[in-house]
């Protein structure tokens, strides 16, 4: 059969066979899902072993999948650190996780994590997800990617920081900030899931 001869029944059959196995986004945690692997210890930039459960705050927990090499991470970096630092003061525990295999990108090695945490002024742990176990458990696929949990460890927001990576002055929707504001004031969340382009997580093989 040539490309010219595709017909609808064949296409429908192929789609039915193939598409179910390709629903990557559906593997991500759903809103309301319980935070996985809260007790898994990961190496922080200060050398200490830290789990998400240990950083959890009174209001909830913000988990950020990030890395050091990605242009989208860099474009959002200043805004990310500013909001995450503010979140720690607002009562959220915050943890940044690098799940990339550093053999794929040298810049994602531990020493680079240490430099980045210091240079950007992170007031929260920046840990290594060796084996990408946490990323897989969360269904994270890209960097940066944000997961916000409430005080009961239920997911209340998943997605992007805001709607414009390349131009902070042109942001029209501050998704994560809006989610936190709604959560803290007990208001319904306008957008509990959003998406952004990002660098695919370089999972450990």
């Amino acid at each position: 059969m040539t490309a010219r001869n595709w017909n609808v029944p064949v296409v429908v059959l192929l789609a039915a066979l193939v598409l179910p196995s390709l629903a990557f986004a559906s593997d991500a945690l759903s809103i309301g899902a319980k935070m996985p692997m809260m007790d898994a210890k990961m190496k922080n930039v200060d050398g200490a072993m830290v789990s998400i459960g240990e950083v959890k705050g009174d209001k909830g927990t913000l988990v950020i999948f990030t890395c050091n090499h990605c242009p989208y991470v860099k474009a959002w970096e200043e805004r990310t650190v500013a909001l995450a630092n503010k979140a720690t003061k607002d009562g959220y525990g915050v943890i940044a996780i690098n799940a990339n295999d550093p053999t794929e990108y040298k810049d994602d090695g531990f020493d680079h994590n240490v430099k980045r945490a210091k240079n950007t002024g992170m007031m929260y742990p920046y840990v290594v997800d060796s084996g990408s176990k946490l990323a897989k458990a969360f269904g994270a696929t890209r960097t940066p990617e944000f997961f916000l949990f409430d005080a009961n460890d239920a997911l209340i927001y998943h997605g992007a920081l805001d709607d414009n990576a390349q131009d902070a002055s042109a942001v029209s929707a501050t998704y994560l900030q809006d989610a936190m504001t709604a959560h803290m004031s007990g208001q319904p969340m306008k957008m509990a899931t959003t998406k952004s382009v990002g660098c695919s997580i370089k999972f450990y093989k």
Partner: peptide, 9 residues
């Protein structure tokens, strides 16, 4: 595609 997470490619 609603199933696309945003990761590239």
């Amino acid at each position: 595609d609603p199933d696309w997470s945003g990761a590239l490619p």
